[in-house]
């Protein structure tokens, strides 16, 4: 199957555009809007539901991310080399993926329900938040659907579509600047949709509250408890106008 022009556009060009938006947007946001860079927590308004839903969503998501990293970055030949057969790999990936995916989905469903039904939380929700929630949920739902679908076809004796021969190959090829468009266009429609939603989520990332993920405070583990800082010498400069842009 030869890739169509649309395939080249979606799997050859789009990833680089999204990458540029993600990196450039994040740098821009960091320079321009450090004050707006926050989780914008709504815990002050409502704590009871949040304390269940938020950890559920976030921890589920962490496992999902780890699963994606393993599935996309580690080539099939490597896992074969260490003696992990296809069946073992898929059962592990599938069971872990389904559990994590369902947890994440349950978490975000609860979070959205809380956001909609708790008055103060809903009134603090911006259009930006709503868009982000929509894309994020779509990404989770589509991801979970393709996982379950491929499991179903696998168990019902059909030809199981191995994303490790299509999506993963394409994903790795992006980073060596030789996108394997053919590999990606060979993937099933479900995977294609999931990838597109994922790309949408990435391009939304720098411009939404999702940026808080980039400031995961790992440094906290390695710093002394009490922080001393000298009076900022640069504040003298900020009375002069700061221009928008890169200057």
């Amino acid at each position: 199957m030869t890739p169509s022009p649309l395939d080249y556009l979606l799997w050859g060009a789009l990833p680089y555009v999204v990458n540029a938006v993600l990196v450039g947007g994040t740098v821009w946001r960091h320079r321009y809007d450090r004050f707006g860079w926050t989780t914008r927590s709504s815990q002050l308004y409502e704590s009871r539901l949040l304390r269940i839903a938020s950890p559920m969503f976030h921890f589920g998501l962490l496992v999902v991310i780890i699963g994606h990293v393993i599935g996309l970055l580690i080539p099939e030949s490597w896992t074969h080399a260490v003696g992990v057969g296809d069946e073992l790999y898929h059962i592990t990936a599938l069971s872990l993926g389904v559990v994590a995916g369902v947890t994440t989905l349950g978490g975000i469903a609860l979070l959205i329900w809380r956001r909609r039904t708790t008055g103060p939380v809903f009134s603090a929700t911006t259009v930006n938040d709503k868009t982000m929630y929509l894309v994020l949920t779509a990404a989770i739902v589509s991801g979970l659907t393709v996982t379950l679908l491929s499991a179903y076809t696998g168990f019902s004796g059909g030809e199981e579509v191995d994303y490790r021969q299509t999506v993963s190959v394409w994903f790795r090829s992006i980073w060596i600047l030789q996108p394997d468009v053919a590999a990606m266009s060979a993937a099933t429609l479900g995977f294609k949709i999931h990838v597109l939603i994922g790309l949408g989520l990435f391009s939304l990332f720098p411009f939404s509250r999702l940026v808080h993920a980039f400031s995961a405070p790992i440094g906290y583990l390695f710093r002394p408890y009490v922080v001393y800082r000298s009076r900022d010498r640069r504040t003298a400069g900020t009375t002069r106008p700061i221009r928008r842009g890169w200057g």
Partner: peptide, 23 residues
């Protein structure tokens, strides 16, 4: 985040609004 600090010169405890991430 390390956004809160004690100022070395006068000991005033402050929040760096640009570094606070709302944890």
């Amino acid at each position: 985040s390390g956004a809160m600090y004690k100022r070395a010169e006068d000991g005033i405890v402050l929040v760096d609004q640009d570094r606070c991430r709302g944890w």
